[in-house]
Amino acid sequence: MSATEGQPPAGTPSTATGPEEDTPMKTATDTAATPAEPSGAAAATSTTTSTAIEIHGLHKSFGDLEVLRGIDFTIAPGEVVCVIGPSGSGKSTLLRCANLLEQPSAGRVVVGGTDITDPDVDIDRVRRRIGMVFQQFNLFPHLSVLENLTIAQRRVLRRGKAESVHAARENLARVGLADKESSYPSQLSGGQQQRVAIARALSMNPELMLFDEPTSALDPELVGDVLSVMRGLADEGMTMMVVTHEMGFAREVADRVVFMDGGVIVEEGTPDEVLGNPQHQRTRSFLARILHPNDTPATDTP
């Protein structure tokens, strides 16, 4: 079952962008909202690209602290890339630069042919195409599960009520929570909340999904449900960039594993290469610490 069809070709003459932001809240009467989804931002080139995301020479500093020191890599459509690395190595920052939650200090990020670091790009429009799942779920606590999934469809994609509810239910079923649509986030377990967060992102029909340690805040027994939802997504061909410490997931699901340390990519390759036969000392000691946390203390601090 694919909830992700009907994405109109990019480069469609877009309807006016500005005024929709100022629509007053009370448009909830809504029955006749336009189902048309004005997609495809500024770039007319996107139809010809074969990369989901390209990152070129990405640098990011917070004041004097240089967190990313030149990152280059691309993800092909349908590819699943897991990013691993020690705490503070810049994994989250990299992910957040990929949808401009952080403004890169230098370098370019190209998503589906759109250079999103171009100041003229409508970033809100690009972000609709990029789903993001956070470590802390970040569900909207004042909205029911169903409303969490429909609010952006309604207000951003201008979908009608029936259509947005339909898409929401479809995605809730996809993450195995069809019976929770009228619950509030506080009534759900962490694992359920994270699956709702995934369904919320999917309801926007993204072409790329970013996951920032989606299972790190979960009790161990709840990790499996979330990972199996993600595995299902990968099987359906979703393009995914996943920051994770779940080496089992990386080994089984990832097409490629990227090891980061100190703001650079130290090593990347297939899971077998990077996890099975790491070439760099830093990768080896990181993996040793992750896989055997109780063994010898780390000695590789830079």
Partner: peptide
């Protein structure tokens, strides 16, 4: 994270 989650869904800052 609430604002960030909303922004990643394509909402403008104002919305």
């Amino acid at each position: 994270g609430q604002l960030e989650a909303a922004r990643t869904l394509g909402m403008s800052h104002g919305l």
